[in-house]
Every structure is written in C-alpha cells, then in structure tokens.
Amino acid sequence: MSNELVLAVEDLTVSFDGFKAVDKLNLYVEKNELRVIIGPNGAGKTTVLDLICGRTKATSGSIKFKDIELTKYPEYKIVQVGVGRKFQTPSIYENLSVLENLEISFPRGRGVFGSLVFARTQDVVDRIMEIAEMIFLSDQLEVQAGLLSHGQKQWLEIGMLLIQDPELLMLDEPVAGMSVSEREKTAELLNRISQGRSVIVIEHDMEFVKRIAHKVTVLHQGKLLAEGNMDAVQSNPKVIEVYLGH
C-alpha cells in the first residue's frame, strides 16, 4: 500500500456557542485506505464529516485534500475536486426514477448552461448501467426511487456518489436499517469500491466494522481517543472505559 496522503486534517476545531463539538482533531487518511470512525453518540463523528465536506465551517484548523485547503471552499467545489459524502438518512430524490437519480449525479453539465444543453448520450447511459450493476439495482432503473426499500435507497445514494468517481468517499452509517444479507452485500461493495480511492465510514455495528476496516479511529467528546487496527483499538483500556465505563 502506498503512503500517499489523500486527506490531512490538522488541529481542527469547531465550537457552537463555546461548546467544542470537535476539538483539535488530527486525522490522516491514505490512498486506497478504508477508515472507519467509531465513537459514542455525540463524539463528533458526523460533525467531522460535515466539516470536511463544507457543510459546517471550522472555527480553526486546516483540512487538506491532496494539498487543497478545503476549509475555505464552498460545498459544491469540494465535491468537484473529488470528495463525495453520503448522509446518515438516505438522501435521494424520491420523485425521480433510479436512472434519473444517477443521471443527475453524473459529473457533467454542472453549470446553469451546461445543464440546459446536457443530453443523455451513450457514455452517460453506459456509466449508469455500470454503476447500477455495482449497487445491485440494474433491474430497478425505471422504478421511482421513493419506492425502493431502505437498504436499496442506501445503495442508490452510494451509487450516486460513485458515478462521480470521487477520490475520497465519506459514508455516514451506510448499513443502518439494512437486513443481514444486505449488510453482507454492502461489505462486499465497500471492499470493492475502496480500490483506487479512500473511504471514510462512520459505523456503529462492530461486526460490520471488523469486516471492512483497515484502520479504526475512535472519537470521544470531539477528541481523538485512539487509532489503529481493530484489535488494538478494541483492547485499548481508554476505549473500553468510554464504551463500558458509564
């Protein structure tokens, strides 16, 4: 595995009315890495993703994505340089078909006039088919997205990110609400898509984390508590204290 850094978060702090949701956090993610962030409720996991993708503005500190400083970028630019983000509850366009959901996410014609002249050409269709295959939805292309099962909606949102081919993919609880067999398939999917890009996953389900994680980061009260491979983290006394201590 190469050691090329894709994401370097340094001294990141955000405070809401004096409450520090993220406190002097350092986080480094390498290329081809699949990192899982765990931590108790309110540890600041989702806030970290919000900060990286620009949804929340940092109070201080820096977020570097391949030497690009993201803290000053608006959200859409962060996406355009190659950072994709999936929300905790599946965020798809319920009134559009699966195909249209993927088509809208296709990274071309993102400007006003570009979108006016955008046409569904063969390369777009091919790419949609390829992604649909990957997310197990080839047979549902014409289905209205609102009618999909919860798990399928999660996949669709992952697909909407994949079609943009981001270098850094951030997934907030991707298997929440999934059945056991859906979890299996998702683990497989995540292992496949982490080839050639970096993935950050927030997850609560430890069995699932074990299956996918290369490296685990534990957050607690906005601070880094522990980092390392799954076994090391699980036997870390500080982590045990946080999870079982109260």
Partner: peptide, 30 residues
Amino acid sequence: VLSSKLGRLLLAMRDKEDRVRFSGYDVANF
C-alpha cells in the same frame, strides 16, 4: 428549460437541496 436537466435539478432541489449541493452543483446559480 423544464425538459432539460436544469428542470430535473429544480425538482431535485425542492426535494433534497443538500443532496444536489453535495453532488457538485452550485444550487444558488440555478
């Protein structure tokens, strides 16, 4: 305008504005 992708984006924005934004669109411009 409505039949173009811009039209679908408008519908998408009414449904999930954040998703459109995090798909790389500058929502304000539309």
